[in-house]
Write a protein that binds this DNA or RNA. Structure first.
Lengths: 223, 223
DNA sequence: AAAGTTATTATTCATTTGTATAACAAAGTT
DNA sequence: AACTTTGTTATACAAATGAATAATAACTTT
């Protein structure tokens, strides 16, 4: 018994609508899905709830996506790309100094924008699906290895800048470690936001990266 | 139409059972819940599936737990305690040398037993619930702060052993950082197990911890 | 051995969910 | 202005789920 249109065929007011373009509708649905997962978790993410948030009715979802799974897939892809883009843009828009760029990389990924419960909820909501769905796993791996490649590249540039010799193997290990520090701090901060003072995670991140790489990044990256 | 007992009142064989003690049944249900979450994720974890894995029928769940949520809560609590206990026991059973103990702490939490997809699936399944349920959040925070306290304590002992002076603040920051490294490596290894060679995460973990703390742990902890 | 407890199974129910289909209307085409 | 297309809403449906209740049998007590 739907409640919106008349109680029992009484008024039967049909929801007015406009025909928006496909791009707009797909994006609206994808973003509504992300908002839904972030707010209610994957279980609370029903086609009806998504539709409400996108300002449409549930039936429209199937017009643009073959199934709910496909919509979730599109949403995850969108999310991964957005995250990767933000990290890359922040560094690319930064100064050319490799040390400053490295510090900026750490800072950006530990900024208040990155470290919040919404992101964590999204991440956790998706992660479990990554295990069961090969399509999700592919998207995830793509984003992840790209992320680590960025870290390695930045470290390599910084080492070259200070004329420190290194090997591919060492670079790989340091890339993994730097990523681990960032991920770990991100995780801690996202789960228990109240446990850390403002900027504390960033400070720890920079200090840890400095110790890890043997480069002093403490005074770098503060434009 | 249940399939087990006779097709239509034909044989009507009732499932035979034994009256196990309350402890046994509660534990079986909790463990079945964990197995279910690990294998199927939180969505696939239905009361019926849990009951099957525990070798009982769904109705029994409500006899021991007021609701499914309460069962999940008990399962999470059990999981957190088990993890904390394992880490602590490994260190306590180890040698008295503070440096060896610190290395052992890192190794244990990055061992193959800890780093696997099952644990990740469990963790991810629970994490999202932590956000919405205060009871879950309390359990989580308890386990987490305890874990970090252990790290701080081990670092403090190691510093005292090598007669290095420190402050409470530095100890806190190093504890957070060490934890972050372990968590981050654990995460990377659990998500993409194929990406790392055997023992690679452990090696990186020890090397990173050494750099972070300024203590050489490389040759420690190999009984 | 008879009676009583209650652990356990079996059944029922209301709700929710994803999907499928039907009805409708907004925009384009001629 | 009439016709077509298809974006969009509304309804229907079967399956699944958590919970509630009824039926039964395994122990315990006496």
């Amino acid at each position: 018994m739907p409640d919106r249109p008349g109680v029992a065929g009484m008024s039967a007011v049909r929801k007015p609508f406009r025909r928006e373009g496909e791009d707009l509708r797909r994006r609206a649905l994808v973003e509504a899905t992300l908002a839904c997962i972030a707010t209610l978790g994957m279980e609370g993410t029903t086609v009806r709830e998504i539709a409400i948030r996108a300002g449409v009715t549930a039936g429209l979802i199937r017009h643009y996506f073959a199934s709910k799974d496909e919509l979730v897939l599109a949403a995850y892809s969108h999310y991964v790309e957005k995250m990767a883009r933000r990290s890359r843009e922040a560094v690319n828009d930064g100064p050319p100094d490799p040390l400053l760029r490295l510090a900026l990389f750490v800072r950006t990924n530990l900024s208040a924008a990155a470290v919040d419960q919404t992101n964590l909820a999204l991440w956790a909501g998706f992660i479990k699906t990554v295990r069961t769905s090969p399509a999700m796993a592919a998207i995830h791996l793509g984003g992840y290895t790209g992320y680590r490649a960025d870290a390695e590249s930045l470290i390599g540039a910084a080492f070259a800048f200070i004329k420190r010799r290194t090997t591919a193997n060492e670079l790989r290990r340091l890339g993994i470690a730097l990523n681990a520090i960032i991920d770990g701090l991100w995780l801690e901060g996202s789960i228990a936001p109240g446990e850390f003072a403002d900027g504390e995670l960033t400070t720890i991140g920079i200090a840890s990266a400095s110790a890890l790489l043997g480069i002093n990044l403490e005074n770098a990256g503060l434009a």
